[in-house]
Amino acid sequence: MASNDTTKHGQHHQEAFPWKHIIGFLLSLVLTFGSLWFVLGSHLPSQAVISAIVILAVFQAMIQLFLFMHLTETFGPNYQQFLIFFAFFIAFTVVAGSIWIMAFKSYVA
């Protein structure tokens, strides 16, 4: 393919400096340290710590999806966003449903 064609392609899609990526990277570092602080620094009860770090993880996953993976970028209908959200719904159903169902031992015991 013509490599001089490259310059024409989508330069206007891209800012001159990768701000999005740098902000995303810094935020992910901050969130990771945040989790670390909750585990080591805060002296909250363990249930609270777990809730906090799971929430931070969700935020961090969203950074990857939106800032790095361009989940919202689309040329035509945005089916991928719907599919990824549906995948998260199924994943949640599998994890939460299994925990709920497999707690059956406490009934049996």
Binding site: S3, Q11, P18, H21, F25, L29, F68
Partner: peptide, 24 residues
């Protein structure tokens, strides 16, 4: 492990960014 992988994700993003600017 975490920081290596987070950084690699960042550099991989920069690769895509450079690709879009046509910088081989």
């Amino acid at each position: 492990e975490t920081f290596l992988l987070l950084t690699s994700s960042f550099t991989c993003g920069l690769a895509t960014y450079s690709m879009r600017r046509g910088m081989k």
